[in-house]
């Protein structure tokens, strides 16, 4: 009897937690963070966060948000409940994109102007190393198995493979022009890299660091040079991958097994970054020029709604 009550209460608690999902979006031009209830489809509130916020990440314990406030030259650690600042990390000048290692002890940030990747020890808030990479490093990712740190350089057009233990480059792979974003599959076996100026997605095999597939996006009625892939995510089963195509205003749905392009979903203007809902049932997109986010239902692969959030939405994360 007691046990079943407890079970019921637990179930209730769990389900209420699941429905209480929150989406956080950085608003580059409003210097603010938008807090969104995606289930209800409403913007809950907008809070000032710092100058020109761009990259955002959620810590593994879901307690802290990490936000790169580019014009403040820092990455802020924000309490996700109170949205108050708890600490600042020495990111170097103009931080934009960064990545956390799986246990959140280290944060890696691209320093575009200096062709460096800065390694920050999160606990002591110290920069412990700077790794010289190619010109204008942009995309950055850590493999889920914590073996590789990836930096993509936009002008050198390379993927730099950095060993997370030695923090040195051990390999480089030349990819298509202006590599913007990189992401690993959940099993760390594949790395997907988008090339903005070529309109392509490159899939690399982690073991060999070789290119196994290059996918050229083509959208009927949209000229090739408008198709500019940026944000990319792969679901946990590596069934589907999703690529934001920038000013083509579409998200490409890619079959992650066959690498066939399943379809293109029309979203808002200049779609930039992507984030899964915690249960991976939905995908959230930031649409920089239409000042909204789109919500894509991943069972039907349909855009279900858009929510106005503020000026120049840039980064997005979803918190259970």
């Amino acid at each position: 009897m007691k046990k079943s009550v407890l079970k019921a209460v637990l179930t209730l608690l769990l389900s209420s937690t699941a429905s209480a999902e929150t989406v956080y979006v950085t608003l580059e031009k409003d210097n603010a963070l938008a807090v969104i209830d995606p289930i209800a489809g409403v913007l809950v509130k907008t809070v000032p966060i710092g100058q020109r916020p761009r990259g955002i990440a959620l810590g593994q314990d879901n307690k802290f948000l990490y936000v790169a406030t580019s014009d403040d030259n820092t990455i802020k650690i924000i309490d996700a409940d109170t949205l108050s600042e708890t600490a600042r990390l020495p990111s170097g000048e103009d931080p934009e994109t960064f990545a956390l290692n799986p246990d959140n002890t280290r944060l890696f940030v691209s320093n575009e102007d200096d062709s460096l990747v800065t390694v920050i020890d999160v606990a002591t808030r110290q920069a412990i190393k700077q790794i010289p990479v190619g010109v204008e490093p942009e995309g950055i990712a850590v493999s889920p198995d914590n073996h590789w740190l990836i930096s993509t350089s936009e002008t050198t057009n390379m993927v730099h493979w950095i060993d997370t233990k030695s923090l040195t480059i051990t390999d480089n792979t030349l990819v298509d022009p202006r590599p913007r974003a990189a992401t690993f599959s959940a099993d760390s076996k594949q790395l997907w890299v988008t090339s903005e100026m070529a309109g392509t997605l490159t899939v690399l095999d982690t073991d060999t660091r070789q290119i196994i597939k290059k996918i050229q996006f083509k959208v009927p009625g949209v000229t090739a040079d408008t198709i500019q892939p940026v944000g990319v995510v792969i679901d946990k089963d590596r069934r589907w991958g999703y690529v934001a195509l920038g000013p083509a205003n579409r998200v490409a749905v890619v079959d992650a097994q066959t690498f066939a392009i399943e379809k293109y979903l029309l979203v808002g203007q200049r779609v930039w970054n992507l984030a899964f809902s915690p249960d991976q049932q939905r995908l959230y997109t930031t649409n920089g020029l239409s000042s909204d986010i789109s919500i894509i239902d991943l069972n039907s692969h349909k855009v279900t709604r858009s929510i106005a959030v503020g000026r120049n939405p840039w980064g997005v994360v979803a918190r259970p």
């Binding site: 062709s115 190619g134 010109v135 350089s153 002008t155 050198t156 057009n157 390379m158 730099h160 480059i169 480089n172 030349l174």
Partner: peptide, 10 residues
């Protein structure tokens, strides 16, 4: 200078 930064990898 940019070309040479790339060149060190190629």
């Amino acid at each position: 200078a940019d070309n040479n930064t790339t060149g060190q990898f190629t």
